[in-house]
Amino acid sequence: MEHLAMHISNGIINGPVAAIFAVIALAAMALCVQRGRQHLDDRLAPMAGLVAAFIFAVQMINFPIFTAGVSGHLLGGALAALLVGPWVGALCVAVVLTVQALVFGDGGVAMLGLNITNLAIIGTAAAYLLIVGLLRVLPRTPAGLAVTAFVSALVSVVAAALGFVLQYQLGGAVYLGDNIAGLAGTIAVTHLLIGVGEGLITAMTVLTVAKTRPDLVYALRARGPVASSPVPAVGGAR
């Protein structure tokens, strides 16, 4: 087990492109802090801490996919968006990536902006757009929530992976020429399979939280008074 990297390592994308994405990531995270703050109250703040810690834990658990010799692991963008919303959710994933790069040698520090762009920004944004759309059309049942979680998680993984393909096209270490299509194909197929795992984990986790504490699921809170009626403001109202 000498090499257990899950994220983009140093040397894979050139310095200038990595620097550009570092600036993009930093600007996006600043926006997330500004927008996310409005939702962060005494209840969401510790929940968001838990979501980050949970994503860190589950990312460690690589699961086999149907292709021999390749594994996948949770990325977490959809889970974070469902539980704590897109702004705070993106920050949760970014904190995980930062801890992994600074403390666990996973993902180059110079590559952090690339990794944050793919997993925290693209992954969370793609998931959230789907979550909003699907929750609007699907029935307000556990099954509707499960389908929303599964589909948004699956698509977000493929979207995040294609973010890497774009970055590689812009500044990949080895010029692949026409082979970039081959890389894109490989990445898309494996991440479609990884997305199935991501979808199952995300749906299972969100359903569990929704069953025990529906008020702690951001996506359900945003659905208005019908969905959040089981949790009337009694006693604890300030």
């Binding site: 994220h7 949970f54 860190f56 996919i65 390749v70 692991h73 990445i187 990884i194």
Partner: peptide, 23 residues
């Protein structure tokens, strides 16, 4: 739950390279 996953279940994780690394 997170501590159990990271502390115990993690050692049963697949050792194969992930989708990015294998590509």
């Amino acid at each position: 739950v997170s501590l159990l996953l990271a502390g115990v279940v993690s050692s049963f994780a697949s050792a194969d390279p992930d989708g990015l690394e294998s590509a």
